[in-house]
């Protein structure tokens, strides 16, 4: 909570608020599990309750709700009342958007700052600068859940070609910086496969498979990239078996030497030097390929699952045993 500056004047001492009757929170109740409020917070929220009681919607309500929000940005009722007041007095929503920029950056993890922005942006219908603003916010916290889901809402809601256009490059950059950033992977899936009215073409599926495999080659134990690979295959109903040649080298114990380093197979990139092999997600993937091949396949998958249970992924022993049990029962 930000400390109030020394010249902060409580509402009880502001002459322009003399006509408002402050309402204390608890009337005749000695609350259990109370919060020790600061005098400033108690004062501001008493006046807020006073305003809510009379239903006043005026310019000064914006002053009051701002003070409450600055002291507690999660005060959803103050946000809600502020929004209703903005509409009631026909205030400039563009100014409000500008005003809440600072609050959004200061209180990234608060639901309300983002939702308020969403209401405003939907009302003004002018998202031109929003993605750039969000990039500056994500620079502060590149995995912030609210910021990402809000960015995705902005894209889906306004659905403008020029806004979608820059997204692949943006995600490319983020994954270049950190290929373990799962929020960026999810965003990649969102912009590629979840855009309304866009049938994903075969060449896009192929491009995305290659992209995921290149990233797996750099760090084969990165689950984000494997999940994306699986996601693309599932989405396009491509059998996992199509990736057997790619996956196999990742299940060995050593980084294979490329016979001819001049020839690079983009479809089947080999694990990079430094890779820790065998990679658990690769063993799992190979077992998944075998599992769908019927009884003989299951027989080949079982030793792979056993190696995960007993050696490579022991924390999930129960899960791998479950997989064996399920596969044997089904086969």
């Amino acid at each position: 909570m930000p400390v109030q500056s020394e010249d902060y004047v409580p509402f009880a001492q502001r002459p322009e608020w003399a006509d408002v009757v402050p309402v204390p929170q608890y009337d005749g109740v000695q609350p259990l599990a109370p919060i020790f409020y600061t005098p400033e917070y108690k004062d501001a929220t008493d006046y807020f309750r006073g305003i809510v009681k009379t239903g006043e919607m005026s310019e000064r309500v914006l002053v009051l709700t701002e003070e409450v929000i600055r002291m507690n940005p999660a005060h959803y009722s103050a946000w809600q009342y502020r929004y209703r007041t903005l509409l009631a007095i026909n205030a400039s929503l563009k100014d409000e958007l500008e005003f809440t920029k600072g609050l959004a950056i200061a209180h990234l993890k608060t639901y309300q700052v983002w939702h308020h922005r969403r209401l405003l942006l939907a009302a003004t219908n002018d998202p031109a600068d929003e993605l750039r603003f969000l990039e500056s916010v994500l620079n502060v916290d590149v995995k912030n859940y609210h910021t990402w889901s809000y960015r995705q809402w902005v894209l889906a809601h306004f659905d403008r070609e020029e806004m979608w256009a820059g997204e692949v490059d943006y995600v490319d950059r983020l994954l270049e910086e950190d290929l373990r950033n799962n929020s960026a992977w999810h965003h990649r899936f969102f912009i590629t496969f979840q855009r309304a009215g866009k049938d994903t073409r075969e060449d896009v599926v192929k491009r995305e498979l290659v992209f995921a495999k290149q990233k797996i080659a750099l760090a084969p134990n990165n689950m984000s990239a494997w999940n994306y690979l699986r996601g693309v295959l599932d989405y396009s109903h491509t059998p996992y078996a199509s990736q057997e040649d790619f996956v196999r080298p990742y299940t060995g114990t050593q980084v294979p030497l490329s016979f001819d380093s001049d020839v690079i197979d983009v479809e089947n990139p080999l694990p990079s030097e430094g890779s820790r092999l065998p990679a658990v997600p690769a063993i799992e993937f190979l077992a998944d390929i075998y599992e769908v091949e019927g009884k003989e396949g299951v027989d080949e998958a079982i030793p792979l699952w056993k190696s995960l249970a007993e050696e490579h992924d022991t924390i999930r022993k129960k899960y791998w045993e479950y997989r064996i049990h399920e596969a044997v029962t089904a086969a």
Binding site: M1, L32, A33, P34, I35, F36, Y37, T38, Y41, T45, M71, N72, P73, A74, H75, Y76, S77
Partner: peptide, 25 residues
């Protein structure tokens, strides 16, 4: 301590979640 004495001022950030403070406790 939380139930009977109450929560220190840093919990002002959860003033809109008082039922949660009660339920969690």
């Amino acid at each position: 301590r939380n139930l009977v004495q109450g929560f220190p001022a840093r919990y002002i950030s959860q003033d809109a979640s008082q039922p949660w403070l009660m339920y969690w406790t």
